[in-house]
Design a protein around this nucleic acid. Sequence first.
DNA 1: GACGTTTAATTGTCTGACAAATGAAAATTG
DNA 2: CAATTTTCATTTGTCAGACAATTAAACGTC
Lengths: 246, 246
Amino acid sequence: MKIDPDSKIDLSAQIAKAIRDGIMAGTLRVDERLPSEAELAEQFDVSRPTVREALKRLAAQSLIRTQRGATGGAFVNRLRFEEAYGQHVTTSTLLLSMNSVSFATACEARYALERACAPLSAQRRTADHLATMRAEAHRQAQPGLSDEAFCASDVAFHRALVDAADNPVLSYQLAGAVEAMQPLMNMITFTARSRETIVQIHTEIADALGAKDAATADALLVRLAEYTESLAQSIIAKRDAAKAIR
Amino acid sequence: MKIDPDSKIDLSAQIAKAIRDGIMAGTLRVDERLPSEAELAEQFDVSRPTVREALKRLAAQSLIRTQRGATGGAFVNRLRFEEAYGQHVTTSTLLLSMNSVSFATACEARYALERACAPLSAQRRTADHLATMRAEAHRQAQPGLSDEAFCASDVAFHRALVDAADNPVLSYQLAGAVEAMQPLMNMITFTARSRETIVQIHTEIADALGAKDAATADALLVRLAEYTESLAQSIIAKRDAAKAIR
DNA sequence: GACGTTTAATTGTCTGACAAATGAAAATTG
DNA sequence: CAATTTTCATTTGTCAGACAATTAAACGTC
């Protein structure tokens, strides 16, 4: 990759792209050390601050890690699911909030995705997954729980459901989608009755997975999706009514 | 957010986090201008290069955009699906290649996700989506097509299938997963006979969606998933056999 | 050989400077 | 006055050089 000083694009962006391309093409392998900042500056014929800006861009994407000291430098980072997961959640959350995605759209996507892994979860769930799901359902039944804590537990429940599919790729994709919905869910006030309904369905889902009954689990997820959306709609209706009065 | 000069973490990373938190919390709104680099440097009590490194980190995540000139500066960027999509593909691709995710795992995830949106696609597909899918299936039947072009067309076909669900959140999540699989798919050599089978199924999928027949579309996706995986397995077996001889 | 000490390499940060872009204000011109 | 050109201030982009902090390896010393 050549660097064009007359390009409209930042030099640091061009350098970052060149290195990123090298990583994606496999020219730069995992844990391989990049040349020092001074050497990179000489190679690309730019100053060290410019090189540093490029490296920070890559670090922001977890593509490299840096270490100080004699044997330090920048190393190609093995991208782990956990790191990628965090970025995925951040991006997804902002996408939803900045593009005024409706609750219905996000909800539809979320439950469609969860239904996709339910059959696999029914087949592969371990006792651990079931225990987590039952524990979260139990927590959700506690009377004093705040709405935020209820939503957080809801995320944990569905996270366990997704992880039970035992497919890291699915977990990565889905957990991001589910967690990104939490800010939207947090806007819902859960009444005692609606909580009861949700906990009931959660418990039945855990039972269905326990029995490796994929069809029932699927039907329950459909019910949960419909119930969640009706809940959101009634709240939106109330809010709009309150607005109309003003 | 306070900046701790004695922290183990880079100052630029801390500053980036502070600004990112502001964006996610809504304190900084879309299209709002951040203070100039000089002002930020004074506010955080660091030098301008440090501030710049922080801004480059945010730019790498498409959270801000910068503009030169008198009325220029750094602005909170409205994160669009297209930008986020590109990053998602990059991350997913690297995740698969760096964590030695098996073809079977990736394939399972991909088809599980596609099946999730097939019912929605059957319901909402437009004539445009059907035309794209049929055009790609037709291209895939051309004799002179290279393996890479065949795979690219395959991605385009499935992209149309996903987009037909008319849910941007689903499209964002799924298209990343599908496209990230392409490098793995590219390793498969498609014989004339296997291409014929795939094109046949693709055509039938388009027909099923045309008839709004979700059940048939789902069954076809299952068939396609099974066929793809058997194809991959036979190729892996051949490769291992060749290795054993050596 | 075990244990401090020095040293070299490398990133992290700062200072100061200049170039380039860009819009707004001021000056000029018809 | 209106239109155009010029000037100018602001801001990011880039550079050069310096010093601090960190780290592991090399080196002595006992």
